[in-house]
Design a protein around this nucleic acid. Sequence first.
DNA 1: TTGAAAGCGCTAACAC
DNA 2: GTGTTAGCGCTTTCAA
Lengths: 336, 336
Amino acid sequence: MVTIKDVAKVAGVSIATVSRVIHDGHQVGEACRARVKKVIAELGYRPNSNARALVSKTTNTLGVVTPKLSMPFFGSLASGVEKGARENNYKLLMSNSLYETKSEQEAIDSLRDHNCQAIILHSEYSDEKTLLKLAKEIPGLVLINRYMPAIANRCVWLDNVAGARTATDYLINRGHKNFAVITSIYQNGDPGFRLQGIRESLKLAGLQLSEAAIEESTANMEGGEQAVQALLNKGIQFTALLAYNDLMAIGAIHALFAAGLRVPEDVSVIGFDDLIVSRACRPRLTTMHYPVEEMASYATKLAIQLSDTSIEPESRTHLFIPQLVERDSVADAPRS
Amino acid sequence: MVTIKDVAKVAGVSIATVSRVIHDGHQVGEACRARVKKVIAELGYRPNSNARALVSKTTNTLGVVTPKLSMPFFGSLASGVEKGARENNYKLLMSNSLYETKSEQEAIDSLRDHNCQAIILHSEYSDEKTLLKLAKEIPGLVLINRYMPAIANRCVWLDNVAGARTATDYLINRGHKNFAVITSIYQNGDPGFRLQGIRESLKLAGLQLSEAAIEESTANMEGGEQAVQALLNKGIQFTALLAYNDLMAIGAIHALFAAGLRVPEDVSVIGFDDLIVSRACRPRLTTMHYPVEEMASYATKLAIQLSDTSIEPESRTHLFIPQLVERDSVADAPRS
DNA sequence: TTGAAAGCGCTAACAC
DNA sequence: GTGTTAGCGCTTTCAA
């Protein structure tokens, strides 16, 4: 490993001078700078970032904590963070929380040991108190996909209620009157907000949504399938189905076809998230676009900005609005 | 920030003693150890990993370089690495190469600056010379999804040829005689091997595969669609279609249905990779399972092992075999 | 414009 | 058992 000393020795200068030319210091003579640069190139010298971090206390390192990278949604989130990090010349430290409060905490601690200046956290289960405490301790902490009024300027989140309302209104405008909903058994966070949006829109339109027409299951394809089967078994009549997310919507489509119903001719189905799978099913899924990757890059830049405590943080909110993506799983309500 | 000095002062011992109890040193008195531990807990002391890395030259940090995290395949890869890292108590540094040789190199360099001891690299475009040089310099470097005989014991790869043969043989055994193939325009790496496997099996079975029945396109859904349209436009007759990967297979299914052909009744389609999308399409895709996540964890453990140069590396090969996953997109050849 | 030197937080000899 | 001390590679005063 070639160190700053080696460079200094070969170039015949002091290590201070080498350090200066690395930092583009203008207080170095032309000839000297050129010589040092040449030696650096020849030796292939690269500053040791640990040493640098130790003395300067600035690591240019950013951490992300997400539940599980193998889920496409979080892959996109990570990708957005990576983009933001790269553009700002930051390194990216990554840790999965596996949906557990304990490993989430461990993940965060480990990032702090590394002097991460900025942290992007996707937390569903940690309670507000923990998060608030964390936010106080780490200036560069940004929450993604969660909103807490007390630290509003450090939350990058999606208006799930508005998204669900857009989806519901769209179905209403297409003439649908009989709705069913499949959602997650865990109603805290996103699922709860989306259900709320659905309820609001339906109520405003004077439409009924009986509790029996709301089926809870796991938030994946299998869950979607089971939920629809349950709905069908109960004899619920519906021409429009709102799913908590794309995966459930796709499971629903499978179950619907299996039951001899056509999508969208008999039943219109709408998803939420706009994952890549939504273009894989047939019919292609109409859904609400969740701009995760964009939000993640945004959150990254925000976190980096906030980590510089010399800058007064703006007290603004960072809210994104999901957009409807029309594909082929929704049609006008059939004339009955 | 609380340092080892603070702990020493409060506990009334020297920093060396604190360091010893941290490292579970058995050369510390019972009472003393207990007291130090108590102080550590009270103060919430956590060792600074940069300082630690600087002096001990061991960072317990592992890096991954993949093209793009938002692609489900790489998300799974990253997830597997994360698992391996977590299990070995390593931190994970992540960098996207975006399919460019230049940023791939930058990504690797940045990992080296951080004293990563182990690196998992998914490289498609770097040439062998570069890779070989890198491997020589970094003992803990492991290549995933690429095989180079010179460093066979540091490659974790998939037998694409065998996988393609399995897929092809399966179709042959189902009575198919008229084959078509859709593959990537880039034939280096995976696509080339898979095509080779197809050719081998077909030849062995005495079946023809005209060049016209092989259509190249981009390796995604759109590409799959276009390729099938091109095949159809050319008037190619086929009852079995082998796709380079799941995404192309799904695009193919869309195009087939659009053309009034049924899958699998008229045409059987088989994919490769077994991404989550393969369960999203209808019919569900029969495909070859690529155990990325498992391979990635394996590669991670291997890299960590190799990075410890005191251990003699085994000179074995790390080859994984894809398995057939039967779902609903393949049927017996129709009687003509 | 350049160099000497202090010190970031920690580990690991080496003393006692 | 426990303390003292010399660095790890670097940045950053402070002098010259």
